[in-house]
Simulated scan of single mutants.
Amino acid sequence: MKRSAMTLLALLLGATSSLALAAAGNPLSVHVLNLENGLPSPGVKVELEQKAGDSWRMLSSATTDEQGRISALYPDGKTLEAGAYRVVFKTGEYFKQASRETFFPEIPVIFEIKDSAQHYHIPLLLSPYGFSTYRGS
C-alpha cells in the first residue's frame, strides 16, 4: 500500500474511533432499519421520555441520520437514572415522505433501566405493517 493511502486509512480509522468514543459517553442509542429493502431509515424522528408517576416527561428528541442511527439520544449533561423510559419512533412521517401507507404512525418502546452504568441500544426493524425491536449492544 502506498504511503498516502496508508495515511488516509489511518486518518479514517482515527476519525471513526473518535466518533465511536464520543458517542460511547452517551448511555442511549437507537437504530432504525427498513425490513422491506434492508436499508437504514434516515429521517425518523425519535422522542425519549421518562416515566414520572402516572405520566411521561419528555427528555429529548432527535432524527435518525443517513445510517438510520441516533448515537446519543440521552440528554447531554444529565445522569442516567434507573427507572422506566419510553422511546417513541415517529414512523408515520417517514413513510409519508416515501409515499407509503403504514399501519403504525408511531411506535412506542417502553423499557426499564436497572443499571445506569450500562449502555442501552434500541434497534427498530421496521416495515409498513410490522416491526420488531430488541435490546442491542
Rank of each mutant, 00 (worst) to 15 (best):
1 M>I: 03
1 M>L: 10
3 R>P: 00
5 A>V: 11
6 M>L: 13
7 T>N: 10
8 L>V: 09
10 A>E: 07
12 L>A: 15
12 L>G: 10
15 A>K: 02
16 T>I: 06
17 S>R: 11
18 S>N: 03
19 L>D: 10
21 L>M: 03
21 L>V: 01
23 A>R: 09
24 A>F: 11
25 G>S: 07
26 N>H: 10
27 P>N: 11
28 L>D: 02
28 L>K: 01
30 V>C: 05
32 V>S: 05
32 V>F: 06
34 N>F: 04
35 L>F: 02
36 E>H: 10
37 N>T: 15
38 G>H: 08
38 G>R: 08
39 L>Q: 12
39 L>D: 02
39 L>A: 12
40 P>R: 09
41 S>Q: 01
42 P>G: 06
42 P>S: 06
42 P>F: 08
43 G>Y: 03
44 V>A: 01
47 E>I: 02
48 L>N: 06
49 E>N: 06
49 E>A: 09
51 K>Q: 13
52 A>C: 04
52 A>I: 11
55 S>E: 14
56 W>P: 06
59 L>D: 00
59 L>T: 02
60 S>C: 01
61 S>D: 14
61 S>R: 07
62 A>N: 14
62 A>Q: 13
63 T>Y: 13
63 T>D: 13
64 T>R: 01
65 D>K: 05
69 R>L: 12
69 R>F: 05
70 I>Y: 06
71 S>P: 00
74 Y>I: 03
74 Y>G: 04
75 P>W: 05
76 D>E: 12
78 K>C: 00
78 K>N: 02
80 L>Q: 04
81 E>Q: 15
82 A>N: 10
83 G>Y: 08
85 Y>A: 09
86 R>D: 02
87 V>A: 10
88 V>K: 03
88 V>P: 00
89 F>T: 09
90 K>Q: 15
90 K>P: 00
90 K>D: 07
91 T>N: 06
93 E>H: 09
95 F>Q: 12
96 K>I: 01
99 S>C: 03
103 F>Q: 14
103 F>N: 06
103 F>P: 00
105 P>E: 14
105 P>W: 12
105 P>D: 15
106 E>P: 06
107 I>H: 07
108 P>L: 09
108 P>K: 07
108 P>A: 11
109 V>G: 04
109 V>L: 14
110 I>Q: 14
110 I>R: 15
110 I>M: 11
110 I>C: 08
111 F>L: 12
115 D>V: 06
115 D>R: 08
115 D>E: 14
115 D>K: 13
120 Y>R: 00
121 H>D: 05
121 H>Y: 01
121 H>K: 01
123 P>L: 05
123 P>K: 08
124 L>E: 06
124 L>R: 08
125 L>H: 10
126 L>V: 10
127 S>R: 12
128 P>T: 10
128 P>Y: 09
129 Y>G: 13
131 F>I: 05
132 S>H: 05
132 S>R: 05
135 R>S: 01
137 S>R: 04
137 S>I: 02
